[in-house]
Design a protein around this nucleic acid. Structure first.
Lengths: 255, 255
DNA sequence: GCAATAGTGTCTATTAGACAATATTTG
DNA sequence: CAAATATTGTCTAATAGACACTATTGC
């Protein structure tokens, strides 16, 4: 049998029924705090619980395309603002009993977005909202989404060390102080302003100067700051390592 | 409708037909060279081409369990030797046209194994063999397995920097020289013996002394070396960073 | 003026890495 | 003994981080 005959005779339904979804851990910074996009489930199972935005992968869609589509549906983003959001694959979750309906394998994604307007509920959800990560400890999330969020947060903290992705939380032009605020927010730890400033400028390709400065100083005083944009480096070398205190004992749990 | 009624009425076949497989990038070191486990496909599509071991995820199996099962089938490993193999999730690959049969999403895994006996072909394969990674540049692999292998190799090189997983390529007791040979093989670069030795012993929890030494010196002379076993650290801090020359310009491509 | 912030200078401890030296073992 | 290897010593450059200082701006 040659390959063409084989394909013509092939029956896709001969294989076990598994559904594939994407879920998105979308992070942004609002009012100086790290926020996560959640939806309140409008349907069973787990109706009424908060969950990650996500849904089934459509037939002609790439995985990351599906994740971007789900994100767009819940945030109302499109065009250039959507393109500015960084989306990457996080990990896949496929424990047999993670969803009571059937075997569902979810490819989780991680997204970094600049400060966005309020979320707008999509079709599957009663409600969509940016929730402060600090308030998540109380809340029970649907399915295994608590674990996915934990893995996403650890990945985000780690990504800030060795990639320039912190800039994705900011507008195209930003000050070093704003960049430092991103690190402090995601890592949950104050950094030394002077050392951070020098370190960022010393890493090749992290940021490049626009030549301009802010129009005004800070709201509580201080000089005008120079403006920078993201440079062309994709990896930071040397990296901005987290203080030893903030380092996990082991890596994220991935299933 | 409550959750129980909902589940009773639920029809799994209402969702798009997608199959989920696992593939395994299994690495080992043989004769001082990095080797990869490949099978020659016995069935269409891509019959006759070399491919990664892998297959459909069974209904009650976790993803990593499925990967270990596929690995066991092709290597003939079981019990303690199989437990000594490190398996972790690598990434998922789900481009709509990556398999001509139907939509297949593959959860790729990465495995580190000590030197293993020759592979034994499983049911789906004509042949299974450990192939030197250096010889892969010529060979065309089935599906998108070339990309998966490239991502796996980059992940392996990176993992050696910040985890103690290099020890998984070795027997339970090993010398610092053997550990250095793992790094040199995976990174493809000679390291300075003296500096490496001191560095490994200075990282807390990387290795611990057994108190014993080898029975004999090296085949070409030299003193007996002290024996070590893996320590309890799960992450190395400070890390053993690759020389800047060996660093990629960007991260692995993950789809 | 006062407080806050940007940006720079300086010093110390840690680490990476080059290079050297010594001891031990095989053939 | 010659060559190879393990292990330790020493020195230099790079980096992280503590701390201090000056300049500029909002209120």
């Amino acid at each position: 049998m040659n390959e063409q005959d084989f394909l013509a005779a092939y029956d896709p339904h001969a294989y076990p029924a598994v559904a594939v979804t994407v879920d998105v851990v979308a992070l942004t910074i609002r009012d100086g705090a790290l926020h996560l996009l959640l939806i309140r489930r409008g349907e069973q199972p787990h109706a009424g619980l908060w969950a990650l935005p996500g849904g089934f992968v459509r037939p002609d869609e790439d995985l990351v395309t599906a994740a971007r589509r789900e994100l767009a549906e819940e945030t109302g983003l499109a065009g250039e603002p959507l393109r500015r959001v960084h989306v990457e694959q996080l990990a896949s979750y496929g424990a047999p009993d993670r969803d009571p309906r059937m075997r569902i394998v979810s490819i989780a994604h991680l997204a970094f977005a600049p400060d966005l307007p309020d979320a707008t509920a999509g079709t599957d959800a009663d409600e969509a909202a940016w929730v402060a990560v600090a308030e998540l400890t109380n809340r029970q999330l649907a399915f295994d989404h608590g674990q996915i969020v934990a893995d996403g947060l650890e990945r985000a903290r780690s990504k800030l060390e060795y990639t320039p992705l912190a800039t994705r939380f900011l507008a195209p032009e930003f000050t070093i102080g704003e960049l430092r605020a991103v690190y402090e927010t995601v890592w949950g730890h104050q950094l030394h302003a002077g050392n951070f400033h020098r370190k960022v400028l010393s890493v090749p390709g992290f940021v490049e100067s626009t030549g301009a400065s802010t129009e005004r100083g800070g709201t509580r005083g201080g000089p005008r700051a120079r403006l920078y944009r993201a440079g062309d480096a994709r990896l930071l070398h040397p990296a901005l390592l987290r203080p030893a205190l903030l380092r996990p004992a082991r890596e994220e749990t991935v299933r």
